[in-house]
Amino acid sequence: MDVFMKGLSKAKEGVVAAAEKTKQGVAEAAGKTKEGVLYVGSKTKEGVVHGVATVAEKTKEQVTNVGGAVVTGVTAVAQKTVEGAGSIAAATGFVKKDQLGKNEEGAPQEGILEDMPVDPDNEAYEMPSEEGYQDYEPEA
Rank of each mutant, 00 (worst) to 15 (best):
V66N: 02
T92R: 08
V63E: 01
V49F: 09
E83I: 14
A91D: 03
K43V: 14
E131L: 04
Q134T: 03
E13G: 06
K23I: 02
A53M: 15
N65D: 04
G25M: 10
T33I: 03
A91K: 04
K10W: 06
V55W: 14
T44L: 12
K97C: 10
V16R: 09
K96C: 15
L113P: 10
G51I: 15
M127S: 04
I88V: 04
A53D: 03
G36E: 03
E137Q: 06
A29E: 00
T44M: 13
G86Q: 14
S129C: 06
Y133V: 06
E130M: 07
A56E: 01
G25Y: 14
K21F: 15
Q62E: 03
E20H: 13
E126I: 12
A91G: 05
V49Q: 09
S42M: 11
G106T: 12
T92Q: 02
M1F: 00
G84A: 14
A91Y: 14
D115F: 11
V3W: 02
V71H: 03
V118I: 04
G86W: 15
K23A: 07
V74Y: 12
M1N: 00
L8S: 00
K43G: 01
A124P: 06
A140L: 11
Q99V: 13
K23T: 04
G68A: 07
L38E: 03
I88M: 09
G132S: 03
N103K: 09
V3P: 00
T72G: 10
G84R: 13
G84T: 13
P117T: 08
T44G: 04
T75I: 04
E20A: 14
K102I: 11
E104I: 04
G106K: 06
S9M: 14
G31S: 15
K60M: 15
G51P: 01
G86Y: 13
D2I: 02
F4R: 00
E57D: 06
E137V: 05
L38H: 05
E28H: 04
V16H: 06
E105R: 11
A19V: 10
V16M: 15
P138D: 06
E130Q: 10
D98V: 03
A85R: 03
K10P: 00
S42Q: 07
G7A: 05
D119Q: 11
E105P: 04
V49E: 03
V26Q: 00
D2V: 00
A11M: 15
A17E: 07
G93W: 08
G67T: 11
E114S: 07
L113N: 01
A19C: 03
G84E: 07
K23S: 04
G67C: 11
V55T: 02
G84M: 15
F4T: 00
A90G: 01
K32C: 02
T75Q: 14
G67A: 10
Q109R: 08
G25R: 13
T81Q: 02
L38W: 05
V15A: 04
E35L: 13
E104N: 08
L100F: 02
H50S: 14
T22F: 07
T81Y: 14
A19L: 15
Y125V: 12
V37R: 00
T59N: 01
E61Q: 10
V71E: 02
K80C: 04
D119P: 13
E57L: 10
T64G: 05
M116C: 13
K80Q: 05
A78H: 05
E104V: 07
G86I: 13
E131Y: 06
A29N: 01
A29T: 08
P117K: 10
L113T: 08
G68Q: 05
A69R: 10
A29Q: 02
T33G: 04
K10C: 02
Q109P: 12
V37W: 15
E83R: 10
E104T: 09
M127E: 13
T92M: 03
A107P: 07
A56M: 15
G132H: 05
E123T: 09
V82D: 02
V63H: 01
D2S: 02
L100V: 12
D121F: 13
K45E: 00
E126V: 14
V52I: 05
A17V: 09
V77T: 03
P120V: 05
P138E: 04
V40R: 01
E105D: 09
Y125E: 07
G36K: 15
G36V: 13
A107Y: 11
G93S: 06
Q109V: 06
V95L: 11
E110K: 06
D119M: 10
I112L: 07
D98N: 10
G86R: 10
N103Y: 06
G67R: 12
G36C: 10
V63G: 02
K97R: 10
F94Y: 15
E126S: 05
A11P: 00
E139D: 10
K32W: 15
D121S: 10
K80D: 02
I112K: 07
K34T: 02
V63Y: 10
V118G: 08
L100H: 03
M127K: 13
G14L: 11
G31T: 09
A30M: 15
D135N: 13
Y125D: 09
A85N: 03
E46W: 04
G68C: 03
E123F: 13
E83Y: 02
H50C: 08
G14E: 13
G73Y: 08
L113G: 11
T92W: 14
T72A: 14
Q24W: 08
E139Y: 11
E13H: 02
V82T: 05
G106R: 07
Y133P: 13
T72I: 07
K32M: 11
T54N: 06
E123I: 08
E104P: 07
V55F: 12
A53E: 06
E61G: 04
K96S: 08
Q79H: 07
K23D: 00
A76R: 09
N103R: 06
A29F: 13
E130L: 08
K23P: 00
A29L: 07
V95H: 13
V40I: 10
A30C: 09
D115W: 06
A29G: 02
P108C: 12
M1W: 00
I112Y: 05
K32G: 01
K32Q: 03
A30G: 01
N65K: 08
E131M: 02
L38Y: 11
A140Q: 07
P108R: 11
T54C: 13
G86A: 08
V37I: 05
A29K: 03
Q62S: 13
I112W: 06
G25P: 01
G14P: 01
Q62W: 07
V55R: 01
A124F: 11
G31K: 14
Q79T: 04
Q24P: 00
G132F: 10
D135G: 07
K32R: 13
K102S: 01
E57W: 05
Y125G: 10
Y136C: 06
V52W: 13
V55G: 01
K97A: 11
G41T: 09
V37K: 01
K23N: 01
G73H: 12
G84D: 03
G111M: 15
T72H: 15
V118L: 09
K12L: 12
A27M: 14
Q109W: 10
E28T: 08
E61W: 14
L113W: 07
L38M: 12
E123G: 14
V52S: 02
A30Q: 01
H50V: 04
A78D: 01
S42A: 15
K43H: 05
V95W: 12
E131S: 08
K34L: 05
K10A: 07
A29S: 03
A85V: 11
E123A: 06
K43D: 00
G47T: 15
E83T: 07
H50M: 14
G7E: 04
H50W: 13
N103I: 04
K45Y: 04
K23Q: 10
K45D: 00
A69Y: 14
E123R: 04
A27L: 13
Q99G: 13
D135T: 09
P120A: 10
G47F: 14
G132A: 09
L8D: 00
G73K: 11
E139K: 10
V63S: 02
P138M: 07
T64R: 10
D115S: 05
Q109D: 11
E110A: 14
D115M: 09
K80F: 15
E123V: 15
S129P: 13
G25L: 15
S87W: 14
V15H: 01
T54Y: 07
G93E: 05
A69P: 03
